[in-house]
């Protein structure tokens, strides 16, 4: 199965390199523009992993790769799980990269060049690194949910419908988040104390990652269940 994971990553190496370069450019650009790096880089991480998954499934669909693999002595589980594992590996890689990028941009470049929001941050480097880790972890949990939904749809409905439906899901999520933030800003509502405390602690990101992992595992199991019942042609 590791061969399949490696094959997926090798196959998407050009796209991965492109997304990493874009992430680095965004982080540097925002630092020099004296803006917050974290949220945008985390968003870029989400889109990059989504882009990788879409490219990988598009290639599989275009070349009939799943049928090719089905002709080999491979179990259905190996074919399905390998796709989930390769996307997970890429997601973890991007999360680590995004975290490192934000720490470098906000912890070193910002203060040394006296740029960005972190230039005069009272917290030390370790505090900043911890704070960024919590943000990245929260985004990572959400990313796993999006990827689980997309990959499950890919195995159940095929590439074309999965890509179309997932675009709708992502746009819907974006619209809901934007609308909620607009409503809160307009109403000048302060979140309750417990919510603010939760936001500062490690519990919320940990909860997000755990929930993401649970949904990811459920998506994988659902895909396998479906694949074992459907025809591959």
């Amino acid at each position: 199965m590791l061969d399949l994971v490696w094959k997926d990553i090798i196959q998407g190496r050009r796209a991965l390199a492109f997304y990493l370069a874009v992430g680095a450019a965004i982080a540097l650009g925002l630092t020099f523009a004296m803006s917050d790096v974290g949220a945008v880089v985390a968003l870029q991480m989400t889109l990059s992993v989504y882009g990788f998954a879409v490219k990988s499934t598009y290639d599989d669909d275009k070349h009939g790769a799943l049928l090719f693999l089905k002709g080999l002595p491979l179990s259905d589980a190996a074919i399905v799980v390998s796709k989930f594992v390769s996307t997970f590996v890429v997601a973890v890689g991007f999360a680590v990269f995004s975290w490192g990028l934000c720490v470098v941009a906000e912890g070193f470049l910002g203060p040394s060049l006296r740029l960005g929001a972190a230039a005069g941050a009272p917290q030390g480097l370790s505090g900043l690194a911890w704070q960024i880790l919590l943000s990245v972890a929260a985004f990572f949990g959400a990313l796993l949910v999006v990827m689980a939904v997309y990959l499950a749809m890919f195995f159940c409905l095929g590439y074309a419908r999965a890509a179309a439906y997932n675009r709708v899901v992502m746009l819907g999520l974006f619209a809901v988040i934007m609308a909620a933030s607009a409503v809160f800003q307009r109403a000048r509502v302060q979140p309750p104390e417990w919510a603010q405390a939760l936001g500062r602690s490690w519990a919320a990101p940990l909860l997000a990652v755990c929930a993401g992992l649970a949904v990811y595992a459920a998506g994988c199991a659902a895909s396998l269940w479906w694949v074992r019942r459907r025809d591959w042609s």
């Binding site: 061969d3 196959q11 290639d59 002709g71 080999l72 002595p73 179990s75």
Partner: peptide, 30 residues
């Protein structure tokens, strides 16, 4: 299934491969 396929050579109606790779890589993979 996997045991059977270890002893079976199969070529489908439309030969499906990874198109970006070379036959040498494909041989190593398969």
């Amino acid at each position: 299934e996997t045991e059977v396929k270890r002893h079976v050579g199969y070529l489908g109606e439309e030969p499906h491969f990874y198109e970006e790779v070379s036959p040498a890589w494909l041989g190593g993979f398969v």
